[in-house]
Amino acid sequence: MSLEMEYDCPECDSTKFWKTAYMEIHLGKKTKWQCSDCGYGFIQINDDITTAEA
């Protein structure tokens, strides 16, 4: 898994997000991402569950 990904930030016009944390949990792989410009962050579990705004 990469340390960065492209994702449209809902807070600013940036598309660069950096991985700030990663761990294995009972649901799968939990990854925390944070926008490089504004600091907006979200959690993603196994590419299926996310706390990001739609």
Rank of each mutant, 00 (worst) to 15 (best):
M1E: 11
S2D: 07
S2K: 09
S2Q: 05
S2W: 03
L3G: 10
E4I: 09
E6C: 03
C9M: 09
C9H: 08
P10I: 02
P10Q: 00
P10K: 02
E11N: 08
E11Y: 07
C12R: 08
C12V: 09
S14N: 15
S14I: 07
S14E: 13
S14C: 15
T15I: 13
T15S: 13
K16H: 13
F17P: 08
F17L: 12
W18M: 11
W18K: 11
T20L: 11
T20Q: 13
T20I: 15
A21Y: 13
A21E: 13
A21R: 11
A21I: 03
Y22E: 14
Y22I: 06
M23K: 10
M23Y: 06
M23Q: 05
E24Y: 11
E24H: 09
I25C: 03
L27A: 06
L27W: 04
L27G: 02
L27R: 07
G28K: 03
G28W: 03
G28Y: 03
G28A: 04
K29V: 09
K29N: 12
K29F: 04
K29R: 15
K30L: 07
K30T: 00
T31F: 00
K32A: 07
K32E: 11
W33K: 10
Q34E: 15
C35T: 11
C35W: 11
C35G: 08
C35D: 08
S36K: 10
S36L: 05
D37V: 12
D37E: 15
C38V: 11
Y40H: 12
Y40G: 01
Y40A: 03
G41M: 14
G41E: 15
F42H: 10
F42Y: 15
I43V: 15
Q44I: 05
Q44T: 11
I45S: 00
I45T: 00
N46W: 02
N46A: 03
D47G: 00
D47H: 06
I49V: 10
I49P: 01
T50H: 09
T51G: 06
T51K: 13
A52Y: 08
A52F: 09
E53Q: 02
E53G: 01
E53V: 02
E53S: 00
